[in-house]
């Protein structure tokens, strides 16, 4: 299989399928949802990504991403 630049990438973000152009960064994904990357925790294919690695995330076609934030609770 030849390696080609993808025109876009399909990602499942918080259960929704998104198609984003090029190779989207975490910031791109957050922007699409209107989320603040500063206040989001990231679960990538069920693995927790530490905050310090947010810049280095490279998504791949079909990745499942969960953006999690703080809400009220006891």
């Amino acid at each position: 299989m030849a390696f080609t630049f993808a025109e876009s990438m399909k990602l499942t973000v918080n259960g929704e399928t998104l198609e984003l152009p090029g190779e989207p960064s975490l910031a791109d994904v957050c922007r699409t949802l209107g989320a603040n990357a500063e206040r989001a925790a990231v679960l990538l294919n069920d693995t927790v990504i530490p905050r310090t690695q947010y810049d280095r995330i490279r998504f791949r076609e079909g990745d499942r991403i969960d953006l999690v934030t703080l809400v009220a609770g006891g």
Binding site: N14, L33, A35, G73, G74
Partner: peptide
Amino acid sequence: TVALSRFHR
């Protein structure tokens, strides 16, 4: 205490 939730639009 706070809880966690998926971010909602």
